[in-house]
């Protein structure tokens, strides 16, 4: 029993950090643009399959192949902003529909070119083998993912707190109207936010690739956790996102280890809906990004 509790705690940390990494970019985009980027899962796909494309199909060195997808992801988020978000700013039903369509189209492309049988595998393992923590023996890669997520979160929080651009973005997230009056370059800020928001999913995906089985439909699965965390945290608030990520992580691992692993996902979702019914705007009220 003690062992299981300890194990649950360790997994709370690991899953919590991982969910944080997954939801981070989404939260930033929601916070700054006040737009719900349903095309977010394409970043997972581009990162994983982009690397494979450069590495195996174009025979580039592995390090370069890992770096290049980040360029792709940045370009993709720019294009998404330019041709979907900006275009449909006034007609959000169309915007959300277009974003889902875009995601489905990308997913379709990936599943045509690299079906599950293609055996895409990306060796980004940083720590080989398992790490023993108390009673548990966990794949070391999980700790790398957790660490990477935490570092990214810290960097982004620093960015929003310390830099001028971050300040402007916080201003936009507080009041779109006021910041329009004081003459902020919106397009630039929104593009920067979109690109910033596309990096964390790419990093998490690349680190996750060797431990989780890659398949073309992984995007939506990961995104589901991102949605849960972002909604629970209060749309686009980083504090709320952090709390929510560890909360979801805790529910997931405790239910999985103490009750029934099959109930873990369900429990998280039910808790999210119940909390939202009580606090409709999430854990932190979403007027600011931090």
């Amino acid at each position: 029993m003690i062992n299981e509790l300890l194990l649950s705690l360790i997994y709370t940390f690991i899953f919590g950090s991982m969910y944080l990494g997954i939801a981070l970019g989404f939260s930033i985009v929601t916070g700054v643009l006040r737009v719900f980027n349903l095309a977010y899962p394409i970043f997972f796909l581009i990162a994983a399959y982009g690397t494979w494309l450069f590495w195996r199909d174009l025979n580039l060195p592995f390090e370069l192949s890992i770096a290049l997808p980040f360029v792709l992801v940045a370009v993709a988020s720019y294009l998404v902003y330019k041709f979907v978000v900006n275009k449909f700013m006034e007609a959000e039903d169309y915007m959300l529909a277009a974003l889902i369509l875009l995601f489905l189209a990308v997913e379709q492309v990936v599943s045509i070119v690299y079906p599950e049988a293609a055996g895409v595998f990306i060796p980004t393992r940083v720590i080989e083998g398992s790490v023993n923590v108390g009673p548990a023996s966990l794949p070391g890669q999980y700790f790398v993912i957790a660490l990477a997520s935490l570092i990214m979160t810290a960097l982004y929080v620093m960015f929003f707190m310390k830099t001028k651009t971050g300040l402007v973005m916080r201003a936009i997230s507080q009041s779109y109207l006021v910041s329009r009056i004081i003459g902020v370059n919106f397009n630039l800020m929104f593009v920067i936010a979109m690109i910033l928001g596309s990096i964390p999913p790419a990093v998490v995906m690349l680190l996750l690739a060797p431990v989780w089985a890659l398949n073309p439909f992984i995007g939506w699965t990961l995104f589901a956790y991102g949605i849960m965390v972002a909604v629970l945290g209060g749309l686009g608030n980083l504090k709320g996102t952090i709390i929510a990520a560890y909360m979801i992580g805790a529910i997931y691992s405790f239910v999985a280890y103490l009750v029934n692993p099959r109930l873990a996902g369900l429990a998280c979702l039910v808790v999210v809906v119940i909390i939202l019914a009580l606090k409709p705007r999430g854990l932190a009220r979403a007027e600011t990004i931090w």
């Binding site: 929601t30 006040r34 719900f36 959300l96 589901a224 949605i227 849960m228 972002a230 909604v231 749309l235 996902g265 369900l266 979702l269 039910v270 999210v272 809906v273 939202l276 019914a277 409709p280 705007r281 999430g282």
Partner: peptide, 21 residues
Amino acid sequence: ISRGLYFTLITLVLPLILGEL
């Protein structure tokens, strides 16, 4: 209770719950 994007998000989560169930 919920308005706007929040309603959209909650309803987006509903099918996921059913899927888990």
